[in-house]
Simulated assay, not measured.
Amino acid sequence: MELKTKTKEASLEHSLTGRDFLTLDDYNEEELSYLLQLATYLKNARKAGKNVQPLKGKTLGMIFEKSSTRTRVSFEVGIFQLGGTGLFLSKNDIQMGRGEPIADTAKVLSGYLDGIMIRTFSQAVVEELAENASIPVINGLTDTYHPCQVLADIQTIQEIKGGLKGVKIAYIGDGNNMANSLMLGSAVMGMDISVAAPTGYQPDPSITRKAISIANDHGSKVEVTSNPQIAVDQADVIYTDVWASMGQESEQMVREQLFSTYQVNRDLCSLAKKDAIFMHCLPAHRGEEVIAEIIDGKRSVVFQQAENRLHAQKALMLALMG
C-alpha cells in the first residue's frame, strides 16, 4: 500500500510540473488534494524550523498591474523560503505596461524566468500570457477569479474542520472573483456552497453553471440566492468580502445601500451552526460587510487563512516549477 501511495504521488507530481494555474476547475480533486498535502507538509516543516529549499536557482517573475499586500508578500517570501528568487515587476517597470504585445512579453520572460505570477484586471490577459509562455503562469488575481486565495481558504477549512466533504460554505455579499472561485473550488472538492448576493450583483452565470455541473459529479451542491438567511442556514463557514472591490471605488456609496442587508452580523451568524467559522480574504471594512465583533471574535480565522496564502502558494510554486 505504501509503495502504491508513493507511486501515485510521484505520478501526480509529474503531472503538475510545468502546468499553469489559471482557474481552479483546471485541476481535479486529486490534484488539488495533492497541493493541499504539500502545503501542509511545507507549513509543518517551516513551523519545525526546517529549511526546505528545492527551488534553489529558480526565479519567479511577479507582474503586478493591481496593488497588493498579501499576494506580493506571500509569493516573494514563499519563493525565497523555497530557495529561489522573486522579481517584482510593476506595470510601470515593464514594456507590457507601455503597449508591448502580451505574447512578446510572455516569450521574452520565458527565456529569463522559471515561472510567472500575474495579478491584473483581465482574465484574458492571464490566458494570453499563459498561451504564449513556455513556463508556468500563476493567476494571482483577476477581476474574474482569485484561485490562489481559495486554495489557501480550502487548506484553512480542512485544518479546522478535519475534512471537506459535506462542509457548507455560505458566501455573503458581492458575487465577485472570490464568489466565482469559491464556487469552483467548493464544487471540485465536494463541498456545498450557497452564495447570497443582490440581484444584478450575483456571480457570473456561466461560472455558476460550470460549478453546478462539477458539483453534480461530486455529490455536492452549488446555490445562488438573494436571501442571506437562506445561504447561512446551517452553514459551517461564513465568508464575505468587501462590497466595492479595487476599481469600483466610485460605486462605494451605491453599493453600501444595496448591500446593507448583507452585512455579516450577530443575527445572521446565529443561523449558522454553533461551531461555524468566519472567513474573509482581506482587506476588510469593519462596520460595512462585517461587524468588528465577528471578524475580531473567536469564530474568526481570517489571519490563519491569510498565513496559509504563504504555504498554499509555496506548494503551488514547488509543484509547478519544481
Rank of each mutant, 00 (worst) to 15 (best):
G219E: 04
G219Y: 07
S220W: 05
S220V: 09
S220Y: 06
K221A: 11
K221H: 14
V222S: 07
V224L: 03
V224C: 09
T225N: 10
N227T: 06
N227V: 06
N227M: 02
Q229F: 13
I230M: 13
I230R: 14
I230L: 15
A231R: 05
A231T: 07
D233S: 13
Q234Y: 07
Q234P: 00
V237Y: 03
V237E: 06
V237Q: 03
V237A: 04
I238F: 02
Y239T: 09
Y239P: 08
D241F: 04
V242L: 06
W243R: 00
W243N: 00
S245Q: 01
S245D: 00
M246W: 00
G247D: 02
G247E: 01
Q248I: 00
E249Y: 00
E249T: 02
E249S: 01
E249L: 00
S250C: 00
E251I: 01
E251L: 11
M253F: 09
M253Q: 14
R255A: 07
R255T: 08
R255W: 08
R255Q: 08
E256V: 00
Q257K: 15
Q257A: 15
L258H: 10
F259P: 09
S260E: 15
T261Y: 09
Y262W: 13
V264N: 08
V264P: 05
R266V: 15
R266P: 04
R266D: 15
R266Y: 11
D267H: 13
D267T: 15
L268M: 11
L268E: 08
L268A: 05
L268S: 05
C269I: 11
S270W: 03
S270R: 14
L271I: 10
L271A: 11
L271P: 06
A272C: 06
A272M: 04
A272S: 13
A272T: 03
K273D: 05
K273Q: 10
K274A: 12
D275Y: 06
D275C: 09
D275M: 07
D275W: 06
A276M: 07
A276E: 06
I277H: 11
I277G: 11
F278C: 07
F278V: 04
F278Y: 13
F278Q: 03
M279R: 07
M279P: 10
